[in-house]
C-alpha cells in the first residue's frame, strides 16, 4: 500500500484549548506512518455560529480552507466533528449549486484562489478505519486496553445528518483488497468494509475500541448531544445534556470515555464540576480524545499524547 497522505485541517480548538488533540493526532499518525500536512493557512470553520450571523461569509471562508487542500492535490481530514460538518456542508452546497459556487469563486478570485471540489473531506477517524484498516491497527497494538471499560461518545456532527455522513465520512467507492468488481456491487459486502454507520446505532468507535482490545460500554447516550453549542446562551441545557451522558456512562461502569470531537471533549472533560452541581451527583470520569486512546494502545509515551493537558486526570496512564 502506498503511504497514506492527507491535508490536516486542525480547526481552532486543537491549536488552543485542546493542544493534546493535535499532539496525539500527530504522534499516532507518525506511529502508523501516515503523513499529515498541516493546513496552516486555514481559518476557523465558523462552528455553525458564524453561519447563524453571516452565511455567505462562512461559505467563502470554508471554501478557502478546502482550496488549500485542493492546491496540494490532497484529500482533507478533520479532527473535530463540528469542523467536519461545517466543511462538508459548504462543500455539499457548492458542489450542487453552480450558481453559488461561482459567487463564492468570484470572491476567492480576489485572493487568487478557486474552489473546485476535487478534495474529499473526512474525519480522521474514518480515514483510519477505511484507508488504514482496523486489522492493521490491531496488529500494531502493544499495550492492549483489556483492563478497561471504555465508553464511546460519538458526538452529533460526525454522524448526523446521516446523508452527509454517508456521502463524505463513509467512503463508498473503495471496498479494499479482494473486494473487486463484485464486492463493489454488493452493498452488503461493501458496508462490511466501510465505516458508513447509522446515527441510531453507530459502531465505528466501538470497533476501534475492539481493535485496541478494550471493552466497549453499552449505554444509551453514546450517540446523543453534549450541548456544547449552547454552552454560553443556555448553560443549564448544556450542563444537563453533558451530565446525562456522563452519568449514563458512569452508571454502566465506564472507566473512561473517548470522543473524536474536541468540543465534546471540552464539555465532558473541563466542566465536570459545574455539571456535577447541576446534576446533584459526583462526577469523576477520565475523558480521552480518540488519538490519545489509540496512542496509549500503540505504546506511545503519555507525555507525547498530551495527557498532562487533560483536566479529568487519567490516572491509569
Amino acid at each position: 500500500m502506498a503511504k497514506l497522505k492527507y491535508a490536516l485541517y486542525t480547526g481552532c480548538t486543537a491549536r488552543e484549548s485542546t493542544p493534546e488533540l493535535l499532539m496525539s493526532t500527530l504522534a499516532v499518525a507518525k506511529k502508523l506512518d501516515i503523513e499529515l500536512v498541516l493546513l496552516d493557512e486555514a481559518s476557523c470553520c465558523g462552528a455553525s455560529h458564524l453561519q447563524d450571523f453571516d452565511d455567505f461569509l462562512s461559505l467563502v471562508l470554508n471554501a478557502r480552507n478546502i482550496c488549500y487542500a485542493e492546491k496540494q492535490e490532497l484529500n482533507m481530514v478533520t479532527i473535530c466533528n463540528t469542523c467536519q460538518l461545517n466543511t462538508v456542508m459548504t462543500k455539499e452546497r457548492l458542489d450542487r449549486d453552480e450558481d453559488l459556487k461561482s459567487q463564492v469563486n468570484e470572491k476567492l478570485a480576489e485572493v487568487g484562489l478557486e474552489y473546485q471540489g476535487t478534495s474529499s473531506v473526512r474525519h480522521f477517524l474514518y480515514a483510519i478505519i477505511d484507508d488504514y484498516g482496523l486489522d492493521k491497527l490491531a496488529e500494531k497494538v502493544v499495550k492492549p486496553l483489556d483492563d478497561f471499560n471504555i465508553a464511546a461518545f460519538y458526538g452529533c456532527h460526525n454522524i448526523r445528518p446521516s446523508h452527509l455522513h454517508r456521502k463524505h465520512n463513509a467512503v463508498e467507492t473503495d471496498v479494499g483488497e479482494g473486494g473487486g468488481e463484485e464486492g463493489f456491487e454488493n452493498v452488503e459486502l461493501m458496508s462490511k468494509y466501510n465505516s458508513g454507520e447509522n446515527p441510531y446505532n453507530p459502531t465505528s468507535l466501538d470497533r476501534i475500541i475492539d481493535a485496541l482490545r478494550g471493552k466497549s460500554v453499552d449505554y444509551e447516550s453514546k450517540n446523543k448531544c453534549c450541548g456544547f453549542h449552547a454552552d454560553l446562551q443556555a448553560p443549564h441545557t448544556a450542563h444537563k445534556l453533558t451530565g446525562t451522558a456522563l452519568l449514563d456512562a458512569i452508571d454502566n461502569n465506564a472507566d473512561m470515555m473517548v470522543t473524536p470531537c474536541p468540543l465534546c471533549h471540552l464539555n465532558m472533560d473541563v466542566k465536570q464540576d459545574s455539571v456535577a452541581k447541576e446534576m446533584g451527583r459526583d462526577i469523576k470520569l477520565p475523558i480521552l480524545h480518540l488519538p490519545q486512546l489509540i496512542g496509549l494502545a500503540l505504546g506511545i509515551d503519555p507525555q507525547e499524547l498530551g495527557l498532562q493537558h487533560n483536566v479529568s486526570e487519567p490516572t491509569f496512564a
Binding site: P161, K224, C225, A230
Partner: peptide, 12 residues
C-alpha cells in the same frame, strides 16, 4: 432559536 443545541436530531 438561540437555545437550539444544533444536534441535528430533528433533521434525522
Amino acid at each position: 432559536v438561540w437555545d437550539c443545541v444544533k444536534c441535528f436530531e430533528c433533521a434525522e
